[in-house]
Nucleic acid binder design. Structure first.
Length: 506
RNA sequence: GGGCCAUUAGCUCAGACGGUAGAGCACCUGACUUUUAAUCAGGGUGUCGGUGGUUCGAGUCCACCAUGGCUCACCA
């Protein structure tokens, strides 16, 4: 592609080595920069005191007509008409037109205005008026260049469409595609609403380590890093779960953390290697409480940020108003596949039943009853869960941190939330029996040594913590990026992450 | 990692059959004192993602590579 990012400027003078090429558009801007300096105009200004934002002037024209205002922003378009010119400048609130007339500002200022490029950042003092065509405009009285732009912006009409460039150069995307900003503003509001919901209910926000000696709390391949002076391998965390539960042991009864997790796995429209997770734990609660909390939290956030709990995602109406369907996994699988895992007791029977059901599913010979059940579920049920649905009671083999059901120890008090066929939340009544927990870890360790890189690691200190006694507790994890995707109608996780991971160029 | 698709000017995109690369915006020169996708007159600014190959001749055909998108696998 282009030679972007290769130019250097030192001591205000251009230092372009021979192999580096500036295209004509950029050369012209460098020349203008030199010209400005020669005239004694500093192209990179400092503090500039504004009196109004563009949006405020547009919203309060009646009050501000004929008033003097000071605005600042980036030039987004420019129309010269000889001895008068128009431009639009853009600040955080939007765009406003400015008007400059030779007679009003004099020869030197008008010449400067003429030299300005789209992309330059300027400050303007002037009087608010409405043009003949009815557009609210600032008639320039004084003009100051605040930052000279040396690169051309993308086209004013089509904006920047190349998705690769949009993600790599998000700053350009944000300048020229106003709808992108709206999504990230919404993301911020959503996260704020989540926090305020939890804060109002007595939850304490905490921060636990991102660098773990043992990557626990989830089944995933971790990123590995290294600490020099300790001479030790560290993992970027795949989940904060085990630390948060240590805090429950310690006597905090309601805690949460909203922060990044890192998983060394595939990248897709639903996966970024680093993603934001909400995890919360509540002592003396269980997974029923977590279901109530989840639906109330999500519905409240939607209402607070968007004023409604009925949303549209990619053309599908989704109703987030509580109560949501609660369906045991066994019932869901029976309903959609006809296979009744309630009467199937062994992996062997399960394999045969899957074969007979002809759902086109390949089952590995080594798979257990529980993982076969989960496979069938994912294949047959998951894609159909469009409206918010809690799927309850996951098999114990795939839920090593969840409490067993009293009436069926092969299942756990665990649920996952699905919306639009996607997993949005995962929660359970936490396993607080240290001996059972140790056994579960040992099973995971076996799987690990059998080559399963995603199996949990043994965490002795976590067992120790449980041995001190952890109150019964409910725990919940919600993928914030996916929640934001849903609420902002974004098709890709990259649309809700400002700087998604990309392979470096060159 | 597999499959499919894409990559042409700063941006958005055209380029049947292989014949020496185009448009709009942006930019440059000039005109224009309420324009607004301003207008009018002139100007094409390019390693056609890269490297090889086929061919008299490659943006176009072939191979490999790079980056990205979608999708499958894995996961949240």
């Amino acid at each position: 592609m282009s030679e972007q990012g290769k130019k250097t400027v030192a001591n205000g003078k251009e230092q372009i080595s021979p192999e580096e090429e500036l295209n004509d558009l950029m050369l012209v801007r460098r020349e203008k920069l030199t010209e400005l300096r020669d005239k004694g105009i500093e192209p990179y200004g400092g503090r500039y005191e504004r009196t109004y934002m563009a949006g405020d002037i547009l919203a309060n024209f009646e009050k501000l007509e004929n008033e003097h205002v000071v605005v600042a922003g980036r030039i987004m378009s420019k129309r010269g008409m000889g001895k008068a010119s128009f431009a639009h400048i853009q600040d955080a609130t939007g765009q406003i037109q400015i008007y400059a007339r030779l007679n009003d500002i004099g020869q030197p200022a008008y010449e400067l205005f003429g030299k300005l490029d789209i992309g330059d950042i300027i400050g303007v003092t002037g009087k608010v008026f409405k043009t003949r065509m009815g557009e609210i405009t600032v008639a320039t009285e004084d003009l100051k260049l605040l930052s000279k732009s040396l690169r051309p912006l993308p086209e004013k009409w089509h904006g920047l469409k190349d998705v690769e460039l949009r993600y790599r150069q998000r700053y350009v995307d944000l300048i020229v595609n106003p709808e992108v900003k709206v999504v990230f503003e919404a993301r911020s509001k959503i996260v704020r609403a989540v926090r305020s919901y939890l804060d109002n209910r007595g939850f304490l926000e905490v921060e636990t380590p991102m660098m773990h000696a043992i990557a626990g709390g989830a089944a995933a391949r971790p990123f590995i890093t290294y600490h020099n002076t300790l001479d030790m391998k560290l993992f970027l965390r795949i989940a904060p779960e085990l630390y948060l539960k240590r805090l429950i042991v310690g006597g905090f009864e309601k805690v949460y953390e909203i922060n990044r997790n890192f998983r060394n796995e595939g990248i897709s429209t639903k996966h970024n290697p680093e993603f934001t997770m909400l995890e919360l734990y509540q002592a003396y609660a269980d997974y029923d409480d977590m279901m109530n909390l989840t639906e109330e939290l999500v519905a409240n956030v939607a209402f607070e940020v968007f004023g409604t709990t009925k949303i549209e995602y990619q053309g599908t109406q989704i109703d987030l108003s509580p109560k949501w369907t609660r369906l045991p996994m066994l019932d869901a699988v029976k309903l959609h596949s006809g296979i009744d895992f309630g009467v199937i007791k062994t992996a062997e029977e399960a394999k045969n039943a899957v074969k007979q059901a002809k759902i086109g599913l390949e089952i590995d010979p080594a798979e257990s009853w529980g993982s076969i059940l989960n496979k069938v579920f994912e294949e047959v049920v998951e894609p159909r869960l469009i409206q918010p649905t809690f799927i309850m009671d996951y098999p114990v083999e795939i839920s090593p941190l969840a409490k067993r059901k009293a009436e069926n120890p092969e299942l756990t008090y665990r649920f996952e939330l699905f919306i639009y066929g996607r997993e949005m939340a995962n929660a359970f009544s936490e396993l607080n029996d240290p001996i059972d927990q140790k056994g579960r870890f040992l099973k995971q360790v076996e799987k690990r040594s059998a080559g399963d890189e995603e199996a949990h690691m043994m965490d002795e200190d976590y067992i120790t913590a449980l041995e001190y006694g952890m109150p019964p507790a409910g725990g919940l994890g919600i993928g914030i990026d996916r929640l934001v995707m849903l609420l902002t109608n974004s098709p890709s996780i990259r649309d809700v992450i400002l700087f998604p991971l990309m392979r470096p160029r060159d």
